[in-house]
Amino acid sequence: MVVENEKIAGETIELLEARLRRLEYFLTGDTHWTGQPTAAPKPETFDDTVARRLMRLNSALESLGRNVPAVQDVLQLYSRFPDLFRTVPAQTIPASLTTQNLASIVLSYASAFPETSSRLTSLNDLPIPEPTLSASLIELQPRLGKLIQIQERQAKEVSDLRTRSAWLLQRWYEVGLVGSGECWAEWEARLEDVDREIKREEVVCLRKANEI
């Protein structure tokens, strides 16, 4: 009995060690030349531990649920209808579907199989770009950001110039055309008054000359 318990304890420890090595590989993604996963680095401070990070994440999620109405609606929907958020495993086939229904579903996607295969083959045929080209594109990113800012500023200036041009054109119509037309009309009226006065004076002078 003691030997069997020791065997069970040893197997349990081995399984726990295997799970621990798998978790270390998930965290680091690196292994030694022997195939053993590299141990995860120890946190520099207490705030960098997994427990503290999970606590901060949980606090951020709670704050998000309190402050964002859309998240509140989703949480309420989950609390009322949790079945909507359960994913059906790919291996599980609904019992309500007959063989004919399943065949029709598979046949409806039959045309997508060769298309997907050709696309995957074309991806394999595509050459991988040189790392220097990718690095040069990354180095150009700050310059592109500045150019985008300059372009936005120029677009704003052009919009302001269009607004000012429209205002100047309206002002020219009001002052140059309408105003000058009113001025000519006023001058014409004043000339008509002067012409009328001159004719009246001529008539008066002509009468005086006839009387003499």
Rank of each mutant, 00 (worst) to 15 (best):
70 A>S: 12
72 Q>S: 06
75 L>A: 10
77 L>Y: 02
77 L>A: 08
79 S>I: 01
81 F>V: 10
84 L>G: 03
85 F>Y: 05
86 R>N: 06
87 T>K: 05
89 P>G: 07
89 P>I: 07
97 L>C: 12
98 T>V: 05
98 T>H: 12
98 T>M: 02
99 T>A: 14
100 Q>C: 03
101 N>T: 02
105 I>E: 02
107 L>E: 10
107 L>S: 01
108 S>N: 15
109 Y>P: 01
112 A>H: 15
114 P>H: 02
115 E>S: 01
118 S>P: 02
119 R>Y: 00
121 T>P: 05
122 S>L: 10
123 L>R: 08
127 P>Q: 00
127 P>G: 04
128 I>T: 14
128 I>K: 15
129 P>H: 02
132 T>Y: 02
134 S>G: 01
134 S>I: 06
135 A>T: 13
135 A>Y: 06
135 A>G: 15
138 I>E: 09
140 L>T: 08
141 Q>S: 07
143 R>P: 11
144 L>R: 15
145 G>V: 06
145 G>W: 14
147 L>I: 13
149 Q>V: 12
151 Q>C: 09
153 R>F: 10
157 E>T: 13
158 V>R: 09
159 S>L: 12
160 D>E: 15
161 L>F: 13
162 R>I: 15
166 A>W: 07
166 A>R: 14
167 W>S: 14
167 W>M: 13
173 Y>M: 04
177 L>S: 12
179 G>L: 06
180 S>P: 06
181 G>I: 10
184 W>Y: 08
186 E>L: 12
186 E>C: 07
191 L>E: 08
